[in-house]
Design a protein around this nucleic acid. Structure first.
Lengths: 190, 190
DNA sequence: CTTTCTGGCTATTCGCATTAGCTAACGGAG
DNA sequence: CTCCGTTAGCTAATGCGAATAGCCAGAAAG
């Protein structure tokens, strides 16, 4: 029995491969074990159960998305930053629909933490917009709702009509930006 | 073997009970069969398989939501109608989180049809707003994204912070209304 | 070199969806 | 009213996937 050099991280890597190829439904301990060149029960030495694996995957994806978003926002502020953030988000969703779908789970503590990192980015952007405190929370929720809602609908096939999706997203971006409290629009150069 | 008087509709009814009590995860053919006072295989006489049952449930919920929305919008127009629509939606989600979660599925033909009935309501509201054609499609998508995104985040525990959710939703409503094309704001009495 | 710990394996169990094949109840035609 | 076909239920059995138990070899630590 040669060792396979597994680890929770390595298992998540393999799981992401499966997700990219066959969507979240393709995630099976048997499938993961095959990838790892190992029998299914061996995975339990590294991961408590399937639920935990799903959580780990979700956290990984959130962090990946957070990285892309942070990167996109870097060096920008105000409306520019907001646009960049929203574009980065959708770009990720379109490029990795399976991962995005796998990210969505009912929140466990670890997910809340990873989600917090994502929220912090938005809060930073909104601060550059002049929003802070409770107002910033409300604005963040609106922004997340819009962006996430669009992403979910797009990936689940909720948008059936043959009308350009980029244009729709552009309108959504405009609506969010122009909908932020008037006092915050100083930096806006849409 | 006395007959149980089952039918696809009756099975959906029982499934909805299960969902209300234990969320979508509680839906099991065994559980449904118990409710019906019947052995699991008997269900296959009325429903092709679990996937079909899920689709039927989804359609039922969409129609229910459409009814509530239609009702809420009745006799109103413009911003009034829009507010009423958004409030009805969230009210449904808060009252029936399980059903709403069960409604979300990757789109099959039947779902597209039921979803269309929902979209038509929004389009009608937007028409009273002066929006038609492609513009109305884009606006509908934005509205759905916002509303659905908020609903999903709320029901999956995505909003962790102790800040009032009603206020956030109110802001979202404002943002949507004020974000619609200027030419369409004639009727707006926010 | 020996002891210990770790990661892998096989065998097994359990839950759930699904299929096969049997039988009894209902409902219409003679 | 009776006969017969269709329908709706049943029991039994299969298969897949998650999960547990308990064994064993090879790495690591002394």
């Amino acid at each position: 029995m040669p060792r396979a050099g597994l680890s929770p991280d390595a298992i998540v890597d393999l799981t992401l491969q499966l997700i990219d190829e066959g969507g979240p439904a393709a995630v099976t301990l048997l499938a993961v074990a095959c990838r790892a060149g190992v029998a299914p029960p061996s995975l339990y030495k590294h991961v408590r159960n399937l639920a935990e694996l799903n959580t780990l995957v979700s956290v990984r994806v959130m962090d990946e998305l957070a990285d892309r978003s942070r990167e996109a926002v870097l060096g920008r502020s105000g409306a520019q930053a907001l646009r960049a953030f929203m574009n980065a988000w959708r770009h990720y969703v379109v490029m990795h629909p399976g991962r995005y779908a796998a990210m969505i789970q009912t929140s466990r503590p670890e997910l809340v933490e990873a989600g917090g990192r994502l929220v912090d980015i938005v809060l930073a952007v909104l601060r550059s917009y002049g929003l802070e405190g409770v107002d910033a929370i409300h604005a963040t929720r609106c922004l997340r709702s819009a962006v996430h809602g669009f992403a979910v609908l797009e990936t689940t096939g909720g948008f059936g009509l043959p009308v350009d999706l980029d244009d729709s997203y552009e309108l959504l971006t405009q609506m969010i930006i122009s909908g932020l409290p008037k006092s915050a629009q100083d930096h806006a150069d849409v």
